[in-house]
Write a protein that binds this DNA or RNA. Structure first.
Length: 206
DNA sequence: TGTGTGATAGTCT
DNA sequence: GACTATCACACAT
């Protein structure tokens, strides 16, 4: 079956990513993450992200300068940063900024739209809310691993586009980031207020 | 229904 | 050699 989907793979321009991580995080809410596997798309709508800065952000991998692992964060915006954590999980970030400023946006959760059966298979779970409700889950469902580290997000196998049909801009809430110890004073986590596909267990206090 | 704890391996000092 | 992050499961209420 080679039926063409309605999703047009119009990548976001590079200038979209050449902003600060905080600005990019807000813009990414509601965009579509598309992963092409065997010519079949997995599509999800991004509903939860976190911004990470550079040397000025103690929660960021780039806080202590460039290392072998985080050097992708120092690229200009529009490419991926995939890192391995907990000895068993991957996390997917979108690199922000231009020139040498380090920064990235961690994709924490998304809403499954297309290829749901494939995602269930990859995750070995049936419930929709268990598929993409966490950074490591999202990578497992989308088959994102280190081989995708550093690639640009403007073409297959991994890209980000705008949602074609949108009634109105999503209401966006900001909260402190999750799973870190430093930098808790910054409210750099951005979520779609209407979404039920978030990674946080409790509804956030505003 | 909600909370607590154990498991894991790559990266940096 | 120490640290780091998340998921999944078990348990108690």
């Amino acid at each position: 079956m080679s039926k063409t989907r309605d999703y047009k793979y119009v990548p976001l321009p590079k200038s979209f990513y050449e902003v600060t991580p905080v600005q990019l995080a807000r813009k990414l809410i509601g965009t579509l993450l598309i992963r092409i596997i065997d010519n079949k798309p997995l599509v999800a709508r991004i509903v939860e992200v976190e911004a990470y800065g550079g040397r000025d952000d103690p929660a960021s991998h780039a806080y202590r300068g460039m290392t072998g692992r985080n050097k992708v964060m120092f690229n200009s915006g529009g490419c991926s940063y995939v890192y391995f954590t907990y000895g068993m999980h991957y996390c997917f970030n979108v690199v922000a900024g231009k020139g040498k400023q380090a920064g990235a946006v961690l994709i924490r959760a998304a809403e499954p739209l297309e290829g749901i059966d494939q995602m269930k298979k990859h995750r070995n779970k049936e419930k929709l809310h268990d598929l993409l409700s966490g950074p490591a889950k999202l990578c497992q469902a989308f088959l994102i691993d280190k081989s995708l580290n550093g690639i640009t997000l403007d073409k297959p196998p991994l890209l980000i586009t705008k949602e074609s049909i949108r009634k109105s801009a999503p209401e966006i809430i900001t909260t402190p980031r999750i799973g870190i110890k430093a930098g808790l004073n910054k409210k750099w986590r951005f979520i779609d207020a209407e979404s039920t596909f978030l990674s946080a267990r409790r509804s956030p206090d505003i």
